[in-house]
Amino acid sequence: MILESTNNNQQSTINNNMSKTKNWPLWEIFVRSKNGLEHRHFGSLHAADADMALENARDVYTRRNEGVSIWVVESKNITASNPEHNGEMFEPAQDKVYRHPTFYELPDEVKHM
């Protein structure tokens, strides 16, 4: 789960070492549980290539009909936000109460709006 990794730099060195020692890279697995639902992150696994990642994901994450569709993405291709920057990233949304319906005052007579 590189996108959940503690330290990107550390992980990328691990990945570099992997290619030298021929270790299988890490893949992130997304599964659609049933049609109508989105693909959701289920976890990760190691595999030599995308085909093997798909087959392994089938065996590891859908042994009991948990899915109808699988996406695999090599973990190194995911760019993740950094929780240390959560302030500048997400706080701007906090003082914008006017984006919520409850901000607008309407008389009680107006029902269902």
Binding site: I14, S44, H46
Partner: peptide, 16 residues
């Protein structure tokens, strides 16, 4: 075992 190894790897230790 695989679920747990993956969870463990997020703490910055490799499978190897």
């Amino acid at each position: 075992g695989l679920y747990l190894y993956s969870a463990c790897e997020t703490l910055g230790i490799s499978r190897d």
